[in-house]
Every structure is written in C-alpha cells, then in structure tokens.
Design a protein around this nucleic acid. Structure first.
Lengths: 153, 153
DNA sequence: CAATTTGTTACTTTTTAAGTTACATATTCA
DNA sequence: TGAATATGTAACTTAAAAAGTAACAAATTG
C-alpha cells in the first residue's frame, strides 16, 4: 500500500488555518498539499465530524478552525481520520490451528500492540500548537535581534 | 499496500524447521504457509544470506536451521528480510520549503522513530526459541499430569 | 542420465490510499 | 431571483508494493 500521509497533511493544514483570518477554500488547501479540492474535502470531512474544523459553503466560504490549536492533540487528529492502521507489518493466517503459527503471530501482535500504544501516547502528549514552538522561538529570537540592531543605530 | 507478513511467516517456518529431522522442501513449506514454493524460496533466500538457515539442492534437499533457535532473535529475522518499513503511516512532501509543513513532518517523524526504536528493542529482546516457551510449559504440565496418573494406577 | 530441488527472473494479481470526475446542495451577492 | 462560488458525496481510475505465479537454468542425488 502507499503510506497514508493524511495525518501529516492535516497537521500542516491546521497550522495554516490558524494563520488565516478568513476561511480557506478546498481549492487553496489543494494547492498547499499539491492535490485536488475533492480529496481535501473528503479528508477534512473527518476533522469536521470530530469538531476540529468547521466548513462554510458558498461565497467567502471554506474551512476554519473550530478550536484553538492548544486544544487539539495530535491524537485527536489521528482519531478524526478514523484511527488508520499504523503498521505495514501484519500477522500470517490468524485463523490457523497450527500452534507454532499461533505462537509466531502472538509475539508479533504483542510487539505491534506495544509499539502502537507507545505511538498513541506520544500523539496524546502533544497539541498541534506545540509543533510550531521551535519555529515561534526562532521568530522571537529574530525580533530580539532586530531590536538590538535598532538600538545600535 | 498489503500488509507485509513475511516476518510472521518466517518465524512460523523456523519453529517448524526446529522440529524437523530432515530438510524441509519449499514445496512443504508452501503448504504450511498456503502459498507456492517460489515465494518460499524468494523469502527464505534472505534468511540464508543472513546465516539463519541453509538450503540444499537436489534429492533429499530443502531447508535447515543454521543455528539454534536460542541464537536467533526476532530482530535477526526482521533484518534478514531487509528491515522492511514498519509503518503504513508516512510524512507529506519531505522536500517542501513550507516551514509549517516541515514542523508537521518533524513531529510525526519523531513519533514514528520512537515507536520504531521501541519495536526493534522488543524484537531484539526475544529469541525465536522464546516464542514457544508458553507452549513448552503446557507440554511439560501435560507430561507431569500423565506421570501423576500413572502413579495413581 | 533421470529425477528432484533450489536459485532466479519476469510477469500478474491484489489491495488500499490517493487521485479524479461529476454533480447535487447550500450560500452569497448583485 | 439568478449567477457565481463552495462544500458534500458518490463513483471511478491510478499508483505502488507485497503477494502470487510461471518458467527454466543449475546443482545434486541415485
């Protein structure tokens, strides 16, 4: 299968939505993601149902945040996409009667479960706002440099 | 993509190989895995290159273990398969110049990296022999019950 | 030399996200 | 009210990768 990049794309979009004053259309978002408006509507529909964004039809319509980014965890977004399967790795025949095959499956299933729980915990610990903290810090540093430069003049 | 179940299948095969006295043919393994001999040869070829199994051509040939199961970690098998990608989840455009997209990608990449390291650690901690410990214990319990029954007679 | 079995290449199938097309529905604005 | 703009949604096509398949050369056994 191709890798599912909806989570990355949606986080990207949410960060843009926060910077926008007015609603952003699916067309505009499609340009950001290098895809077409219909796919944008389909994918963002999940976020709308989850109460993360709102959509407005007609002139001047488009997509807006329904919450502050500090109120949206990465896990919320992941869940809004339907909690898609994490792994490209799977078990062999799960209906086998072979005890050895069951043992092999059990070991992998357990390892995947633990890794999955670990991943979900990481997603839960971060809000979308956290993603740009490093960037925000850099912006702050730049501002301070500019102030310093002005004083020198 | 379909989920990659080579790891589960190979663990299953290794457990069978240990129980076999003589080499097992790709044909026989194909029956165990409900697939055909050619795929078996292709997949097990990786394990041969990694020194986990050996293969013998011609009459009476087939596949054998090259080591004790206690000397093979699950990670060894995973690595022998070419360390296939773990996740069905991926980043969006990794060559983007958009700082927000970079931030989104970085967060997911980090979470995936951590989950991946976690998973690999679990694989490293277990040998293939460990997979059947629960089963071996049950067998042992059964034997003890039988001895008890004999004594009662 | 005949039978068996691996080694390997090339090709087809399956699966699923992504991509695309089309159109109904809702909203805005002149 | 009607034209333009957007979303909502269904149906279909494409792309990518594992799995599955077929065929045959090479090696080994008897």
């Amino acid at each position: 299968m191709r890798t599912d990049n909806r989570l990355a794309r949606m986080l990207h979009v949410l960060l843009h939505l926060e910077q926008a004053k007015d609603p952003i259309t699916s067309e505009q978002i499609g340009l950001m993601l290098a895809t077409n408006p219909s796919l944008v509507r389909r994918t963002m529909g999940g976020l709308r149902k989850a109460g993360i964004v709102t959509s407005v039809k007609g002139h001047g319509g488009g997509w807006c945040l329904a919450k502050l980014l500090t109120e949206i965890t990465l896990y919320d977004v992941y869940e809004a996409l339907g909690s898609p399967g994490l792994f490209a790795l799977g078990l062999s025949n799960t209906t086998t009667s072979c005890l050895l095959e069951q043992s092999a499956n059990k070991a992998i299933d357990s390892a995947l479960d633990h890794a999955s729980a670990f991943f979900r915990t990481e997603l839960t610990k971060q809000t979308v706002a956290d993603l740009v903290l490093p960037h925000a810090q850099k912006v702050q540093e730049l501002k301070e440099q500019q102030i310093g430069a002005k004083k020198e003049v």
